[in-house]
Amino acid sequence: MVPNEQILGLAAVLFAVGAIGFVARRNVLIVLMSVELMLNASNLALVGYGRLRAALDGHVFAFLVIAVAAAEAAVGLAIVIAVYRRRRTANLDEVKTLRN
């Protein structure tokens, strides 16, 4: 059996990596991947807590997150493609018309 501390620790590390990638990288695709990383880190935490409490609700919740993440990825990639067609760029710093 893997101890709970290690599962939660891995989730925390993964989340941190995702968050840093989300904030620090400029390429849209990498940013979206970082979002996925964070979502999966939280899934891991949910499942881990579910096991800890010996209940199924954590697992059910993880499935819900996976479904929503799929939808998010679909919409997000569609927007990225639409932006790329217009702007010919995937760099987030160059997409900032909605300012001030």
């Binding site: 968050a19 989300f22 987030l92 997409v95 900032k96 300012r99 001030n100």
Partner: peptide
């Protein structure tokens, strides 16, 4: 308040986090 609204998504995300 306008100064904070600079259009950079990642700045918003940083603030959020």
């Amino acid at each position: 308040a306008r100064l904070a609204q600079n259009g950079q998504v990642q700045r918003y995300a940083t603030t959020f986090i």
